[in-house]
Amino acid sequence: MAAASLFLFAALILLPALQTKKLVTRSLLSEGIPSRRSLGAQQELNKISAQKPIDAYFRALEKERGQPDALEAKLFRAGFYQSSAPVIYTLCRFAGVCLGFVATYALLSHFLPPKVPDFIALVVSAFIGLGCIIMPSIALDKFENAQKQIYRRGFPDFMDLMITCADAGMSLEAAVERVGAELAGTHRWLGIQLAIMNLQLRAGKPLRDALRELSDRIGLEEARALAVLFRQSEELGTSLTEALRTYSDEMRSQRILRAEERANALPVKMMIPLGLCIFPVVMMVVMLPVVIRMKGIFF
């Protein structure tokens, strides 16, 4: 199993990465860019690295139309856009079942009395091994939540740049394209999502629909509220710049409130390590002289 895992890792991940690196180097050299560390080379590398997740999203979108719970779409939302990601995910589930069965059977064989038949150990190990099949799904959900946190950290910067572009007189479509290009270096995944939104706008999709699909992809309440804000501003004819500025101020207030909430919850979370690690040591330091004196008097 170890040899097979190493072979699959080399065949599915290492070799395509090396081939991609060679192709990028050749393309940069053909365009007259001698060094990969130059500014032009970094821009080209950002464009090339962003194009792969975009292509993976549209492939997953085609499969998701026929199957709402497509695995490729969920992997893309979690940040895994490689074509080999579904295969690796399936292998991880199979490996989890095998490892759970083998580990449980070894522990039961070692600790159970000899009178207990082996059939019970096999049945219990099989049930625990089948239960381990959900471990990759739990890990995938955690990766998806971590990806949402990445989007949440970059979304206020997106709002500030949109306000700047709107104040400069740019249209919303041009502002989205410019902001997506600017965020590709600092907030890569948010820039990729904005590039997908820009392609949808170029294809003729209305802005309200593109924003709604953006909020569905990144799964943030802030993005859903922004989509509603654009729709209401368009229907009521209000100033979009003022609406963006007001919403940006509200987002900053919400970010401060979330930070204060985490700070207020910190003392409660610190009670467990304090009670388990520091409090016993303090009690030993305080009670040790008393125990020594009592030992000299009563014992």
Rank of each mutant, 00 (worst) to 15 (best):
residue 31 E to M: 09
residue 186 T to C: 05
residue 72 E to Q: 14
residue 140 L to H: 02
residue 256 I to V: 12
residue 104 T to H: 02
residue 3 A to R: 13
residue 275 G to S: 14
residue 17 A to C: 07
residue 1 M to Y: 08
residue 97 V to Y: 06
residue 168 A to I: 01
residue 136 P to V: 01
residue 82 Q to L: 12
residue 257 L to A: 10
residue 66 G to V: 03
residue 203 A to R: 14
residue 286 V to I: 13
residue 152 R to P: 04
residue 72 E to N: 12
residue 66 G to E: 13
residue 204 G to H: 03
residue 17 A to H: 12
residue 242 E to A: 09
residue 89 Y to E: 12
residue 116 V to F: 04
residue 285 V to E: 07
residue 85 A to I: 04
residue 172 L to H: 11
residue 241 T to I: 11
residue 42 Q to L: 12
residue 220 L to Y: 03
residue 39 L to V: 11
residue 185 G to E: 14
residue 214 L to W: 08
residue 286 V to M: 11
residue 148 K to C: 08
residue 6 L to E: 13
residue 29 L to V: 06
residue 106 A to E: 15
residue 56 A to S: 14
residue 10 A to R: 07
residue 6 L to F: 15
residue 42 Q to M: 07
residue 27 S to G: 09
residue 186 T to Y: 01
residue 251 M to E: 12
residue 293 R to P: 02
residue 298 F to S: 04
residue 100 G to V: 01
residue 112 L to F: 15
residue 255 R to N: 04
residue 224 R to T: 14
residue 42 Q to V: 07
residue 203 A to V: 07
residue 156 P to T: 04
residue 215 S to K: 00
residue 114 P to G: 03
residue 63 K to M: 08
residue 185 G to A: 14
residue 76 F to T: 00
residue 204 G to R: 01
residue 146 A to P: 00
residue 26 R to C: 06
residue 229 L to Q: 12
residue 16 P to L: 03
residue 134 I to V: 09
residue 265 A to Q: 10
residue 25 T to A: 11
residue 10 A to T: 08
residue 60 A to I: 04
residue 53 P to S: 03
residue 229 L to T: 13
residue 121 A to I: 05
residue 253 S to I: 01
residue 16 P to F: 05
residue 263 A to N: 10
residue 279 F to S: 01
residue 133 I to G: 15
residue 14 L to P: 00
residue 2 A to I: 12
residue 85 A to K: 00
residue 144 E to C: 09
residue 213 E to Y: 09
residue 185 G to I: 01
residue 119 F to C: 07
residue 122 L to V: 10
residue 125 S to A: 15
residue 94 F to D: 02
residue 82 Q to E: 15
residue 50 A to V: 00
residue 146 A to Y: 04
residue 137 S to Q: 10
residue 234 E to P: 00
residue 112 L to P: 05
residue 122 L to S: 13
residue 7 F to H: 05
residue 171 S to F: 04
residue 251 M to W: 08
residue 174 A to T: 09
residue 46 N to Y: 09
residue 263 A to W: 08
residue 283 M to D: 01
residue 103 A to G: 07
residue 137 S to M: 05
residue 207 L to H: 03
residue 218 I to Y: 01
residue 205 K to H: 09
residue 50 A to I: 00
residue 82 Q to S: 15
residue 213 E to H: 13
residue 88 I to F: 13
residue 263 A to P: 03
residue 179 V to P: 01
residue 190 L to G: 02
